[in-house]
Simulated assay, not measured.
Amino acid sequence: MGSKTTTDAEKGSVVANHPFVVPQFTARDYTSFFTAGALCATITHGAMTPIDVVKTRIQVDPALARHSLLSGGRSIVANEGAAALLTGFGPTAVGYLVQGGAKFAGYEYWKKQLVQIAGDQDTAVKYRTAIYLGSASIAEFFADILLTPLEATRIRLVSERGYATGLVSGFARMSREEGFRGLYAGFLPILCKQIPYAIGQFTVNELCHELVNRSMTEEKRKSLSSASNLGITLSCGVVAGFAAAILSHPADTLLSQINKGHGPTGSMPHRLKVLAQQAGFRGLFAGLGPRMIMTAGLVAGQFIFYQGIKDAMGAPPGLEIHKETSKV
């Protein structure tokens, strides 16, 4: 779809006023994207396990419902010991290892496919936000097929003290007692949670980077120091993390309730509707403050690690379709 003759083309970009070129990623490139995504996700989610434990307990334990992140953590440690803050570390690390790899590699893959479907440069740039939304949503859907049973195990370990000793025993118990239905009981709510999360993570990050790029000349962008680039990545990631937390939090609350066995019997949409009505607006956003802090750190950290690991592996940059309007 055009000859690879320009600097922007070599960088894998689709930019206004330049030839429309789509990079031809190889299987090795996608393997690098998967590996970088898997490592960045498992590192950041694993590190955030204590915060996630407190957040989940605030959502499902009435005794902690009105606690802040700090006071909730203190209460858990006082009553159950410091080790309780690491409950669910195994499912978290393994779950987000496979989910992160599939999500980041999938986002790169589907973004390229949708750019090709757009057919020409102007259309791709014009509809870049729709491309971000679509590629993030599709990638997250397939990633969640891998994540759901491990997330169900994690939430059960966190919400029911003494349920199992760890990932293997917890997963085995759920499989034995509840089967496929139990492991995937949260698939619909996890989609409702993770797809808005991915949209906030990737789309807002892309748009933030575009705003930064449009605020400076090409020469200035090229002359930025490593520290400046790191600061931009961090700042954009924090904003994207806040957006991801807000968009996905109601479904995150419902997911915690579903996996603890709360709510009526019946179809999943019915259970979600009843639980949402019972919780109300305030209940659906219980624990949002701690989750915003956690998610800002997660998303910013993931983008920093993702880029660093890709660079270390010699992977190519992802496809960019930012609209460049800065003065040269």
Results as ranks from 00 to 15, higher is better:
Gly237Cys: 11
Glu320Asp: 13
Arg282Thr: 04
Ser256Ile: 02
Ser248Glu: 09
Asn213Tyr: 00
Gln201Cys: 03
Gly308Trp: 13
Glu206His: 10
Ile258Arg: 05
Gly289Ala: 11
Ala198Pro: 01
Leu224Gly: 01
Ala240Cys: 13
Gly318Arg: 06
Gly314Lys: 05
Lys220Tyr: 14
Leu234Lys: 04
Leu211Arg: 15
Ser223His: 14
Glu218His: 13
Glu210Met: 15
Ala315Gly: 05
Val204Pro: 00
Pro250Cys: 05
Ser215Arg: 11
Phe305Asp: 03
Ile321Arg: 02
Ile232Met: 14
Ser267Thr: 14
Arg271Thr: 08
Met294Glu: 13
Ala243His: 06
Phe285Asn: 08
Ala300Ser: 13
Leu207Gly: 02
Pro250Trp: 02
Leu272Phe: 05
Ile199Trp: 03
Leu230Ala: 15
Asp311Trp: 06
Gln277Asn: 15
Glu210Arg: 08
Ser226Asn: 13
Ile246Phe: 15
Thr265Phe: 07
Gly314Glu: 08
Ala300Pro: 07
Leu298Ile: 14
Lys310Cys: 08
Ala279Lys: 09
Pro264Glu: 06
Ala245Lys: 04
Phe281Glu: 09
Ala245Asp: 07
Glu218Trp: 10
Asn229Gly: 09
Asn259Gly: 04
Asp311Phe: 01
Gly241Ser: 10
Lys273Ala: 15
Phe281Gln: 14
Gln257Asn: 03
Glu210Tyr: 01
Ala198Tyr: 00
Ala296Met: 14
Glu206Arg: 04
Val274Lys: 01
Met268Arg: 05
Leu224His: 09
Lys220Cys: 10
His249Phe: 03
Asn213Met: 03
Ser248Arg: 06
Pro316Thr: 00
Leu230Tyr: 12
Tyr306Glu: 07
Ser226Cys: 11
Ala240Ile: 14
Ser235Asn: 09
Met313Leu: 15
Leu255Glu: 05
Arg214Leu: 09
Ile199Met: 10
Pro316Gly: 05
Ile246Ser: 05
Phe285Lys: 00
Asn259Phe: 03
Leu319Phe: 05
Gly200Glu: 02
His209Ala: 03
Ala227Asn: 12
Thr233Leu: 11
Ser223Val: 00
Phe242Leu: 15
Leu254Asp: 05
Val212Lys: 05
Ala276Ile: 08
Thr253His: 15
Glu218Tyr: 04
Ile293Cys: 15
Gly297His: 07
